[in-house]
Amino acid sequence: MRKILTRPEFVPAVLLILAFIAGTIQSPYFLDVRYLLDSTGPYAETGLLVIGLTFVIISGNIDLSVASNLAFVACATAKLAQIGLPMPAAATIGVLIGGLLGAFNGALVAYAKLPSFLVTLGTLALFRGMAQALMGSASVQVPSSFVGADRLDLPLLGVPLPFGIMIVFVVVLGLTLHRTIFGRWTFAVGTNEEAAFFASVPTPAVKFRIFVLAGLLAGLAGVLIDSRLGVARFDHARGLELEAITAVVLGGVSITGGRGSMIGSLLALLLIAVLKTQMILANITSEVQLTVTGTLLIVAVAITGVATRLSAPRKA
């Protein structure tokens, strides 16, 4: 029993079920599978950021720049398509740009040994500023053939394509995190970087690759947002890093690194999606939503902090 209680997934799983019940009671329009699935579009994008951040935070770092990365990729992809590049090529280059921006973060953190929160606070502004310098405050249209991935349902499963893509990444990268040597290194770096280094874990390379991964996923999310909205703007997804980080720590990932799981992050993302959908449906003002998200972040970290202390072996 105690084992279940202290698992990182426990809290978000319970809250998710409660949120579903609350949503059903609160609004007659909430329990509508079609609507809920249609609402997953934005959360598929958030989800990709969450997957990357799960690695980053388990390794004891943070990446505040993911949403700005997403916005820059969205703008760059649309611009490339606008100057005549075929959309598949533009999208591929877009994802790679995301990886490149991630590599920039990774190099500064892993090799220049700078604190990740400051590096990515800088690139949060830098990437967003690059997007604004590229676009001004105008929007650029995406070729109409590329618009509407979120309204394509996957055969058999019946879930929208972006959500399906996100689930595939959750499974593949979840297995990477929990079943491969790279995953073990990620935990090792987050638990005790020096010890990991002496246990011949290539710590800089591990950190570098994690940031590249987060960047690639943010880039993919940027391409997906282009398809969902049909236009690219520099202010896309502003502040989304906050929601993604909230999901990760709410999912039981310890903010100081070394502990967490992919399923926990996924459940927490679903929880946030359900909560937000409810609030929007109830026309709860955006400022109250802002307060709720911020509080949730702090409470989530506090809870996992307590959980970690509980699950730690008692010292004699």
Binding site: Y29, L229, T277, L281, N283, S286
Partner: peptide, 25 residues
């Protein structure tokens, strides 16, 4: 009559708000 608005003047959050209004019929 009801009213709802995003915290900052950007288009993406208006999309979710419109979707919710469709759902609220």
């Amino acid at each position: 009559f009801t009213t709802t608005a995003p915290a900052t003047a950007e288009a993406t959050s208006q999309i979710d708000l419109i979707k919710a209004q469709i759902q609220r019929r």
